[in-house]
């Protein structure tokens, strides 16, 4: 059993491995970062630290999020990122199961999907936040 954070992204429930998450925060004003990939909303100050704010909705091919309050903080290669979420539901241990064969998943989701957890009788997609972080120069998620 692994501890998962259940959150709402783009209107859907997702499960995030709690080990990936440093904290869940409310972020304040965002300073835009010009010329960065669209997924990068900008920079925010968080307890005297600067975090890069990412909008997963953009990676999923949706219009940018309108609310930019809640975010989960992850740390990748020494940089802190705040990934915007619509809301948080729960923290609970689940078993990670592989995706059922033949399941079709929309592009965008496919890249970040790691499996499925079952909450009650409802399946929830488990996602890998680190896969959302745009690397330098690739701009793969810029669309």
């Amino acid at each position: 059993m692994t501890l998962f954070l259940l959150a709402q992204i783009a209107g859907a429930s997702v499960a995030i491995d709690a080990n990936q998450v440093e904290s869940v925060v409310d972020i304040g004003a965002i300073t835009p970062a010009p010329r960065a990939p669209a997924i990068v909303r900008g920079l925010a100050a968080l307890r005297s630290r600067v975090v890069t704010v990412l909008d997963p909705r953009v990676a999923l091919g949706l219009p940018p999020s309108e609310t930019t309050a809640r975010a989960v903080i992850v740390r990748v290669e020494g940089h802190h990122y705040a990934l915007l979420v619509d809301g948080l539901d729960d923290v609970a241990p689940f078993d990670l199961e592989p995706l059922a064969n033949g399941l079709t998943i929309a592009p965008g989701w496919r890249e970040i999907c790691r499996g499925v957890v079952t909450r009650g009788d409802e399946p929830v997609l488990a996602i890998d936040l680190a896969a959302l972080i745009p690397a330098a120069g690739t701009g793969a998620l810029a669309a």
Binding site: V40, T52, I133, P134, A135
Partner: peptide, 10 residues
């Protein structure tokens, strides 16, 4: 401090 790679990339 260095910014995130996605920001520095430009």
């Amino acid at each position: 401090k260095p910014a995130a790679p996605a920001i520095m990339a430009c």
